[in-house]
């Protein structure tokens, strides 16, 4: 019988732990991003459906842009770009499962969110949509897509860790649907009434969308940048803290 001396545990230093942690996170991030690339059938709907809705909206609601409460836009498509990006990222960020694992998974959601933001903008540009905030604005939109992807990924990760059920994570769709439709993603808050307007006013998705829309329609302002980036970052801090806490609870229970 031989003893493999090389395999014996060697005392580790803190620096080694940090390096290992970074390596693990990077490896898991890469895996998560590759999973998106390797399973196009899972991500295709979150790219196709927002474009389908944008096309439907452009034909159905173009005349509505003349109504009081609508911002000055060349077409409904310009108005709907921000809603399409938010819709795609909300329905496209669904990671399913220690800290490194979680961060690695969320990195995949963030990269996909950024890709979606860029994809929707570039696809709609030949149809008359222009980003008034220019290239810098487009970079802010992509950054906001990444932050939103990570934020929503945090919620779905928390739900997955809590329930351990992919069915329950799929069941979050109606909640995201409500968050999206009770916001100004598709129509301005100024055109809503009563309780709908009250909910849309307090819904953070409204402020995120309006920041993105401001960059598309009005141009580069600190207010638009702050709303487009800080709102998803704020949601992300909360959702990732929730996911971490759920993860700690799950590990403690074992």
């Amino acid at each position: 019988m031989t003893v493999a001396v090389d395999a014996l545990p060697v005392p580790r230093r803190v620096d080694d732990d940090r390096t290992a942690f970074t390596r693990q996170v990077l490896a898991l991030s890469k895996r998560s991003i590759l999973a998106i690339y390797r399973q196009p059938a899972l991500v295709a709907p979150s790219l196709i459906f927002p474009l389908f809705f944008a096309a439907l909206g452009a034909s159905s609601f173009d005349r509505a842009t003349a109504l009081p409460g609508f911002p000055q836009v060349d077409s409904f498509l310009s108005f709907s770009l921000a809603g399409s990006i938010t819709q795609g990222v909300l329905f496209g960020s669904a990671p399913t499962s220690r800290v490194g694992i979680l961060i690695g998974r969320l990195a995949g959601a963030a990269v996909f969110g950024a890709f979606q933001a860029l994809f929707f903008t570039l696809v709609l540009m030949p149809f008359g949509v222009s980003v008034e905030a220019g290239v810098v604005g487009l970079m802010v939109i992509v950054l906001a897509g990444a932050a939103t992807g990570m934020a929503i990924g945090g919620f779905t990760a928390a739900m997955a860790l809590k329930t351990g059920s992919s069915e329950a994570v799929q069941g979050s769709f109606p909640l995201l649907f409500i968050a999206l439709f009770f916001s100004s993603a598709f129509f301005p808050r100024e055109t809503m009434q009563g309780v709908y307007q009250t909910i849309a006013n307090v819904n953070p998705v409204s402020h995120l969308v309006e920041g993105l829309r401001g960059l598309v329609i009005d141009g580069l302002t600190w207010g638009n940048v702050a709303k487009a980036v800080l709102v998803p970052v704020g949601i992300g801090v909360f959702s990732i803290a929730l996911a971490m806490r759920t993860l700690a609870g799950r590990l403690a229970a074992r």
Partner: peptide, 28 residues
């Protein structure tokens, strides 16, 4: 129930959400 409830809940959510979000089209 998980196979039936979505078919029941989605139209309810859809009716409420669409009528609130797209309320303004009635002004056309």
């Amino acid at each position: 129930p998980s196979a039936f409830l979505p078919a029941m809940m989605m139209p309810i959510v859809q009716a409420i959400a669409f009528s609130g979000t797209f309320f303004a089209i009635t002004k056309i």
